[in-house]
Amino acid sequence: MPDLDRNLALSHRHQEMENQALGIEMSERDDVGMIDLRGKADDKAFMKNAATVLGVELPTDPRTSIKKGGIDILWLSIDQWLITTPLKSHDKTLSALTKKLTKNHALVCDMSDARSIIRLSGDRVREVLIKGCSFDATQPDFKPGTVRRLLFAEVAALAHFVDSNPDVIDLYVFRSYANYVWEWLLQTAHEDAGVGLFQVQDAPVV
């Protein structure tokens, strides 16, 4: 159960943001809890019970997510999902899922304090993302709803594309890496560190 006034990994870093000249906006999400859900996608009873509690079917297509109310269900693997819920209804969802799935071969686990979520928003988010990983975030099928695990700045991360125009991407990293990733982003997302990939560029002077 996440503590309502819990100590977030990056809460001490927010006050310094006013002095930073960044090309994007970034902040740590403090309003959601996370639930790890495991079970087999071909187990009809499990899928049905999970859908009953969440109000929507679990996504089975690779690297997709579904939004229902305040709940986001992220596909992680063929037998694993990450559910982010608003903090206020987190306990309710968690206990309802646990109760409903007791007779199924499934696992429900509270992971709220295992990871930190850094929300990146702005027109240069994709540019910042491709600086840190081998994944090509410029390709058109990387659209809102897409979930992609990454090796980002040499640490394990997960990118959830939330919205476009302007782009909003949630970056999930392990809590112990959060400070390092924040530091890395401060450098890489500096307004003078742009590569100008998504803007009209002047022709080079001959």
């Binding site: 690779p62 992680l76 693997s77 994944f135 990454l150 090796l151």
Partner: peptide, 15 residues
């Protein structure tokens, strides 16, 4: 020539 090997999809599905 042909060699069969195991790989882990570490940044995708973890399988």
């Amino acid at each position: 020539g042909l060699h069969s090997e195991r790989w882990l999809c570490e940044r995708g599905c973890g399988k």
